[in-house]
Nucleic acid binder design. Structure first.
Lengths: 215, 215, 215, 215
DNA sequence: AATGAATGAGTCTTCATTCAT
DNA sequence: TATGAATGAAGACTCATTCAT
């Protein structure tokens, strides 16, 4: 009947209810950042939100629904960073821009990684997360679209080959950055995954074709 | 010195013992492919191996040790495919070769993905997996090294810019392929992630630099 | 400050909660009297308290914590009897008093015996018991102190040699009684350990020194 | 059919068999000294005896039967010490003799204590131990009898009141010593239970009766 | 609407004992 | 007779979920 909560049993008093709901999500989000998802119990969340054990079920159909909401929120927050990271088209050099950008993405990915992997452990949770993400303001392409836009603008400025496939470039950059994030996650205290970034960007810019008729 | 079990208890039998041990690993491997790791109980594995509940503990110190062994085995099997996938240097064109290669890697990554992510759920399991993998024939760089070698050979043949950073190229290829795998995993029934591969490879080969003074 | 549960989880209910907690302890206490400690499972206790399997862990951190509480309660109850047993100083004869007293202690020891011995099986349980006992009204010297006091008073009344070491007397009496309790425990259906008590008391009173210059 | 092993399934080859049987008992005995009885598994014993897991059941009907045999052997060994401890009647003074004796018993009791308590945890084991002990050379009174004999001899020598009840004295001495052993066991690092021994002995010798007409 | 005690199914793991070789 | 792998019955403990107040 009420507008906001749709397929969850929601707080019918539109205000205090929504606040509590949000507090639960916030508490869950916090916990997710701090420890392995699997170690988080329904009671932990309630305690972190400073409410009693059962409330959860007044706002969410199950623990996983709450978790999915929290993961979606966290995902959105992280994904939103992409805008702060992107350099303004036209300024500096392409290489500098992309390197700086990748550095930012690397950090973002490092935080997204646990989120992404933990999601895969529980199909039910995953499904609910996907559902939640699609109801979020922007959805999953939040990360991909801005970088594609940037590349297109640079192409129009003539600083990037207009025949290059911007989507492919985005995949190459985001993918390699994600992989670096994974490696840095695995090799605990290793030197630093960021060091390979400049070489990656430079390689992508120059391409693999042998430079014909040059030194 | 002996190839038999070393620091796990049990199976002095050298034959029937090793066989059962292997059967357990096989059963676990099978289950891992079929369902979420977290849903697999110790008893499930025993049942799948058609033995009684406790046997597991005659061959492994814990359920996680068995799981780690199974994951390691599965990882090795998957990683070994890389050799079949790699085209012979010098033949066909670089673009064809890399596209075909990436197509193979994509398939491999699709199968590795659950494995990789599920590993991240349980730190203990992860540690044990790393331990197990290091005792395996080749270890973790099984995937990366062959492609780097291939690229170097092509550089020597003059078909790839000798100044290109082979390691960076590998990261770009493997990373973007991995990302495609993730996306295809998420968008369950979607068309096919493989379709973007040719564009990706072509883009990487050509680079981003505007083609100066050319048609 | 509050009398309610302190460092165990659960039972904020202050009333119904404490009641169940107490019921659990009571049930455990009962079982402890009836059968070997080791044979008592967590579920047995729950069943005896007529609650479901998991409740135990809402009130105690572990089965052993509950057991320790029950043992402590039982110990306190038994030890408290000592006061009812002790005769009033000055009345009757020393011999009668001590004999009657020892008879009471013998019974007490018989009931304490299993408790004492079973405690020694499990270091963890033992530690927890000691912890619990120290939080009890009187603590472990509940048994020893009253008898020492009694002896001192009789010394002041001149009915016991003022040079006798009251502590030593207590040890002699309690020790020999304890040993009788052990023997009676071992020789299941034997005649009765109580029969040697009068001789023991008389012997202690008279001492071993040959009676010089007397009939 | 064969003479020696009676109600256990015994080794029928009268020599190697008996040796192995004895080795098992020895191994168990050793383990009993080293760690809590409950922590000792059937396999532990087999391993300690350097034989395979199943042999045990060729010589004993159950793990507990083996354990009972080991406990009985250990008990006998400890109890046999009493003879070395007892001073020769007539020498030194009664007080010195009894104090020295009690000191020895205290040590013996300290070693017997775990044995005694652990026995009480398992009725089945206890029963079997009692059975085993009765088949041993001397049986359970091994400890009590020598001290009673000593006391009687001193009585005949006139150094102890001939009217004193030697049995009662034995109970008083052994009981209080046993209690000291228990206390020293409980109060882990405490000063030393042996210090109260002289007072105890002196008190027993002098008795409680007020010294009439004396200093 | 909030509470939080109660529920009970489900997990891993241990270990005495058996039995085919 | 010795072996030691296999068995399977328990046991302690966790935790999402329900529901009377």
């Amino acid at each position: 009947m009420s507008p906001s909560p749709q397929n969850e049993r929601g707080a019918e008093n539109g205000d205090k209810g929504a606040a509590l709901r949000s507090r639960l999500v916030g508490a869950a989000e916090q916990l997710i950042q701090e420890r392995p998802l699997v170690s988080i119990t329904a009671r932990d969340i309630a305690r972190a939100a400073d409410v009693s054990g059962g409330v959860l079920y007044n706002y969410f159909a199950s623990k996983n629904d709450l978790l999915a909401a929290a993961l979606a929120r966290r995902h959105s927050l992280l994904a939103a960073r992409i805008d702060e990271i992107l350099p303004p088209p036209g300024a500096a050099t392409i290489e500098e821009n992309l390197t700086a950008f990748c550095r930012g993405v690397l950090k973002m990915h490092r935080e997204m990684l646990p989120l992404a992997t933990e999601l895969h452990t529980d199909p039910d949770l995953f499904r609910k997360f996907i559902g939640a993400i699609h109801r979020e303001p922007f959805g999953p392409r939040q990360v991909r679209r801005p970088i594609v836009s940037y590349l297109r603008e640079e192409q129009q400025l003539g600083r990037i080959d207009p025949d290059a496939d911007a989507g492919a470039v985005a995949t190459l950059l985001l993918g390699s950055t994600f992989m670096l994030a994974m490696h840095s996650q695995m090799g605990a205290g290793k030197p630093g995954a960021g060091q390979s970034l400049p070489a990656i960007v430079r390689t992508l810019i120059r391409g693999l074709a042998p430079q014909t008729g040059q030194t």
